[in-house]
Structures are given as structure tokens and as C-alpha cells.
Simulated assay, not measured.
Amino acid sequence: MKAYKNIIVPTDGSVNSKRALEHAIVLASSLGASITLVYVANIVSVISNFDQIPNASGYVTEQVALDMEEEGKGVLDDFAKEVPEGIDVKTVFEVGSPGPAVLSVAKKYKADLIVMGSRGLGPLKGLFMGSVSSYVVTHSGCPVLIVK
């Protein structure tokens, strides 16, 4: 049987990402694996929704980036608290396109498995939609468990 040592769990705070974490916890506790929680801020996607706002000073862009980072780190902290003692947990905040960013983190941290929700909160609040899970499944170098 394949030994899973590091499980990557992308999250956006959605119910499906919480379910994915629950599955990852069960696997990590029975296999002695660690969990790496990942939040990806897709700032370009969000900022494109503000294209009608004059942005001479860059204030809108800067403020959106700060707000997204604060929200992302808050989600990561909340999810990390759900992981029982005895399971090693790391948190990673990334900026970029969600699918490629998740795969980059998986490669960097030598993931043996990615456990993720099938859909997230949508393009404004969350970052993981069906297209992201599909992208990860298609391009991942390790097994992917999709949780509904």
C-alpha cells in the first residue's frame, strides 16, 4: 500500500473544503501523515471586478490584496484549529491562480495526496470551484481525493 506522509488540503472556508479536511484528518490519524492547509488568493480575478473604479493611486488594488490576505490567513487559522493534537499541521497562504498554485504547493511540500472539495464559495468569496478541482485532478502528480 502507498504510504501517505503529507496530505495537502486546499481550503477557502466553504462547507466542501471543511468536509475535505474531515476526510484528511481521518486519513492522517490512521496513517501518521501530516496535513498542509493551503489558501490561494486569486487577487487578479477579484480586482477585475473593480475595473470601473478609477485606480490612479493603486489604493483599491492594495486594499483588496490586504483584505484577501487577512481573510485567507483567518480561514487557515480556523481550519488549523480543527486538526486534533498529534497531527502535524502547516498552513500556506499563496497568491495566484488556484489550480496551478495548489499544484505548486503540492510539489514544493512533496505531497503524497491532495484532498479537496468539489466546489467552493464562488469567484468573489471563495477560490475553489468545480473547475479548480478538475484542473488539479487533471494535472496533479499525486493522487487526488475529491470530497462532495
Rank of each mutant, 00 (worst) to 15 (best):
G126P: 03
I8M: 01
V92W: 03
L124C: 06
A33T: 13
V92N: 06
V144H: 09
L145T: 04
C142P: 12
L76D: 07
G126L: 03
D12S: 11
L127F: 14
K125Q: 07
S118Q: 07
V9N: 05
V15C: 03
M1I: 03
K73T: 00
E71C: 12
I114L: 03
E71G: 11
V105D: 08
T61N: 11
H23D: 14
G96N: 02
S133R: 02
V137L: 11
K110W: 11
Y39V: 00
N42V: 02
I43S: 11
H139I: 00
I47E: 09
V64C: 07
I7R: 05
K18W: 12
S118T: 05
E70L: 10
I146C: 13
G96K: 02
P123V: 01
K2F: 14
D67F: 03
V15Q: 15
K148D: 06
V44Y: 07
P123I: 00
V38M: 00
G13V: 14
L76H: 13
K5T: 13
D88F: 05
N49S: 15
K148Q: 07
K73C: 00
V95Q: 09
D77P: 00
A56F: 14
V40E: 10
V105H: 08
G126A: 04
M129H: 07
V132S: 10
Y135E: 03
K18I: 10
G120T: 08
Y109C: 08
M68A: 13
V95S: 02
T11E: 01
P100A: 11
K125L: 14
M1F: 07
G122V: 00
V83W: 09
A33W: 15
S131T: 14
E70Q: 12
S118P: 05
E62A: 11
I87Q: 02
L27Q: 04
L76Q: 13
A65V: 04
P54C: 01
S134L: 13
K90N: 14
L37E: 09
F79P: 00
S14D: 08
V137Y: 01
V89M: 05
K81M: 06
P100N: 06
R19L: 13
D88V: 09
V115W: 02
T36W: 01
A24R: 04
K110I: 07
G58S: 02
P100H: 12
